[in-house]
């Protein structure tokens, strides 16, 4: 019995010591987590609340039900912004996926200077969207950029004026966004290609598969999980796009290149309709959830499957 007491004391002291030693871990994980979660969750909840109030310039309490939602969805701005989002989202995701995949496959052919090329293709990622938007607004400006250059070289009939064309302006945003993020898709695809078992390629060679069949039947199917990840990341970027459009077209010409985030900004800070803006923001959040929830479910299912295997 006399021995039991000191042992217990020693144990509890060890417990305190190890807790102290782990203090930095707790601090680095929990403080930022609480702060960011507090910000995100509290402001999201606040926005949802505001969207059900009659607030205009300043937030006021009150309940108007879904009135803000119905009126936002009835505006021309919102329908155009959502149509644009469909065009921009699908065009941007598909193109950056395709270009990223092609770049990754080309880079995977054990070429010389791969590191340099990889950095070059990935570099646009490091540029802020405002810079991308501004530079592309110069490049696409008919009187300043590509059209002027080609005209100056002698092809005077050459026209490339999508930036000021109502129907085509949305594609200029697609171009700039694809330029910015195909490198990212490429990096993920390249990692996926590199993790393909070299024996698989050898087996396919002996089976007699040509390069196209090799990629189509053997290699690309193994890239499915990466493709899904890339699509989801690009889609959530597309849905929340604001700064790129702001710098490139400012939503114009007219309202031809509006996207939901610009509509939110317009309602909240330019027209002083806080509740409508909040309703538009909540609609954006719902769109995001429509993408992210199935993805989370899919990932959960994948993990379950992996755990069973």
């Amino acid at each position: 019995m006399t021995h039991a007491v000191p042992a217990a004391v020693q144990l509890s002291r060890q417990g305190t010591l190890s807790a102290l030693r782990r203090l930095p871990e707790y601090l680095t994980i929990w403080v930022p987590l609480l702060l960011s979660a507090g910000h995100l969750v509290s402001f999201a909840l606040w926005t949802i609340w505001v969207s059900f109030t009659p607030s205009t310039l300043l937030p006021v309490s009150g309940w108007v039900g879904l009135r803000n939602y119905t009126s936002v969805m009835a505006t021309r701005n919102w329908t155009i912004a959502f149509d644009n989002l469909l065009l921009f989202g699908s065009g941007f995701v598909l193109l950056s996926l395709l270009i990223g995949l092609v770049l990754a496959i080309l880079l995977d052919q054990r070429i010389r200077g791969e590191n340099v090329l990889r950095s070059i293709f990935l570099y646009p990622m490091a540029v802020s969207f405002v810079v991308t938007g501004t530079v592309w607004s110069w490049l696409l400006n008919p009187g300043l950029g590509i059209q002027k250059l080609v005209n100056g070289l002698g092809w005077t009939a050459f026209r490339f004026d999508w930036l000021i064309d109502r129907d085509m302006a949305i594609w200029t945003i697609v171009i700039a966004a694809v330029w910015q993020s195909s490198g990212f898709a490429m990096a993920l695809f390249l990692a996926g290609l590199r993790s393909v078992d070299a024996d698989l390629v050898k087996a396919a060679q002996i089976d007699g598969a040509g390069p196209i069949r090799l990629y189509r039947r053997v290699i690309l199917p193994t890239l499915w999980p990466i493709t899904v990840t890339v699509v989801v990341i690009q889609l959530q970027f597309a849905i929340t796009t604001f700064d790129l459009v702001r710098a490139l077209t400012g939503g114009g010409p007219g309202i031809a290149t509006l996207l939901p985030a610009l509509v939110v900004y317009d309602f909240m800070f330019q027209r002083g309709l806080l509740a409508r803006g909040a309703a538009a923001a909540v609609l954006m959040l719902l769109t995001l959830l429509a993408v992210l929830l199935p993805y989370a479910a899919w990932q959960y299912a994948q993990r379950r499957k992996a755990a069973r295997a």
């Binding site: 078992d197 024996d199 698989l200 050898k202 087996a203 396919a204 193994t222």
Partner: peptide
């Protein structure tokens, strides 16, 4: 014909497709 250490079975194909892939080619 070759048998590999890692087996190198095509993961996206069924066993039947794995076996007939060479003939398919």
């Amino acid at each position: 014909a070759m048998v590999f250490q890692s087996y190198a079975l095509y993961p996206s194909m069924t066993v039947r497709q794995n076996i007939t892939f060479g003939m398919e080619c």
